[in-house]
Amino acid sequence: MSPVYLLVFVLFLVGVFGLLTRRNLVKLIISVAVIEAAVNLFLVLAGYRREGIAPIMTEQHHRAEEFAARAVDPFPQAMVLTSIVIGLSLLALLVGISLRLYHIYGTYDLSEIRKAAREEDR
């Protein structure tokens, strides 16, 4: 187990810590982005191969077996791309809702927003 994985896990925990302790919507959204970056890093690392080549077949590679023995695993990269797309749409959505909440309540503090929303309900 290489220390890189440990660093990735630390980054993951930093994001989770932020998500659980912060109240400001912007900071919460940044925490989500940090968690996402950690998971994507881990996925890329899962397909990493020391001194591997890019998994793109070019005219230099005549034999598929030789190519497959040296190229890094492209599958996690496909997963990362998908997860980035999901993360992007989620981030845009969360930012949009936060802006709208700011427009209504004039604050980014989630606990204040919830308090105001509860009072409005009465």
Binding site: L90, I97, L101, A117, R118
Partner: peptide
Amino acid sequence: GRALAAAIRYGL
């Protein structure tokens, strides 16, 4: 406001 507050907590 109330629905949006619930949605963002759920979403985050």
